[in-house]
Amino acid sequence: MKGMLVERIREIFDYRQMLVSIVRKDLRSRYKGSFLGFLWTFVNPVLQLTIYSIVFPFLLRNNQENYPMFLFVALLPWIFFTTSLQGATTSVVANANLVKKIYFPRVILPLSVVCTNLVNYIYGLIIVFPALLFTGVSLTFNVLWLPVILFIEFVFALGLALILSALYVRFRDLEHVMNILTMIWFYLTPIVFAISIFPESVAEIIGYNPMVPIINGFRDVLLYGNAPNWNELLYSMIVAIMTVVIGFVVFEKNEKTFAEDL
């Protein structure tokens, strides 16, 4: 298994120019022909933020201080996560002609989707930092931990992306199942509310969701100016590493029949 992982990483490195080209192409074509173009990178999360900021404090009687920023710093990484899974699930099938015609490490297809959405998240920080400062949040040196938290989320998303993209080639209902699961997952992650609203026993169970320490980590370094909870993040990192290893194994096993199944 170790040899397989090393070989995969080496292949990705060898084809890094192809990966960069696909990501660049996806970024350029995502909003091509639309009136607002690249601005949709900012408009979509801002619209969601506006709706959630109005609806959820009313429904939940939420008195969270600076609720729009409490929500915003969690919503953007969640969008990165879910759009990565949704896009990566169909990535191999969507590039069936390419898969059948030339050789390249197929793992680049789901990887490119996750990378594209990572870049979109980074672009989103262009409005996150000014918004935090505008609402009176003081940024501290702990914001330097942001890349670490983002990397853990990236690894976790990549692992799931590999599994889903490989299985979707055979099981086309998976796309619809994932849409439902991510919707449920959203409400099991403290994005629109703090985990403290739950009874302690329920909060403990929800805490096993690996996205909880990741989302809390984003809030810690961006909103509260604190260092992340490393004990909790270590759990998410272990889950992320296990997931990406399983992802490579599942992808390797299914990749052999991609051409036939497509």
Rank of each mutant, 00 (worst) to 15 (best):
Q17W: 10
L139S: 07
H176A: 09
L111W: 02
Y168I: 00
I79M: 14
S196I: 01
L5N: 08
S34R: 06
N44A: 11
P213H: 09
I241W: 15
I108M: 02
N226G: 01
M211G: 02
Y31T: 02
I102K: 08
L234Y: 12
Q86S: 13
A96P: 12
L139W: 02
G207F: 06
T83V: 03
I206S: 10
S112K: 08
S112E: 09
I214Y: 10
L111D: 01
L36P: 06
A96T: 07
T82V: 12
V93L: 15
I197Q: 13
F154H: 08
D173Y: 13
F58T: 05
R28C: 10
P68S: 12
D261Y: 14
L181G: 08
M69G: 06
E255V: 06
F251L: 15
M4N: 05
L71N: 04
G225Y: 01
F134G: 11
N226H: 11
D220Q: 07
L59Q: 09
L47C: 15
N117G: 10
D220M: 03
F156S: 02
G225L: 03
F80V: 08
L188E: 02
V73I: 11
S91M: 04
V221L: 07
I126R: 05
N216I: 02
K25Q: 12
E232H: 04
P57C: 06
L98A: 14
K32N: 12
M183F: 14
P199V: 04
W145S: 02
T90K: 07
R170G: 10
S91P: 02
F248S: 06
V244H: 10
G247D: 09
T135Y: 15
I108S: 03
P199A: 13
V202D: 01
T82A: 13
L39A: 15
V143T: 03
I22H: 04
Q64R: 06
S165P: 10
F42S: 05
G87E: 13
L158C: 08
S29C: 03
F56Y: 11
S91L: 05
R16D: 00
R61L: 06
R8A: 08
L150F: 15
P110E: 10
L36C: 13
I214V: 11
I215M: 14
L262S: 01
F258Q: 07
R28W: 11
F38C: 00
F218I: 00
N62I: 06
T182K: 03
G217Y: 08
D14G: 04
F72Q: 00
S165E: 08
N226V: 00
T90L: 09
P147R: 01
T116F: 04
A131C: 05
T89I: 04
V202L: 12
M211C: 07
A157D: 09
V73M: 02
L233K: 03
N179H: 12
N66M: 05
P199D: 09
C115H: 09
G37V: 05
A94I: 03
I12W: 06
F134H: 11
N254V: 01
V250N: 07
Y224K: 07
G247E: 01
E232P: 00
F186R: 01
F35K: 11
Q64G: 04
P68Q: 10
T182L: 14
G217D: 05
D14N: 12
L125G: 07
V244C: 07
L27K: 12
V107L: 14
I238K: 10
S165N: 07
N229F: 10
L98E: 14
V143Y: 03
V46S: 14
F198P: 00
L132N: 00
G159H: 00
L132K: 00
N209Y: 03
L39C: 01
I197W: 13
D26S: 14
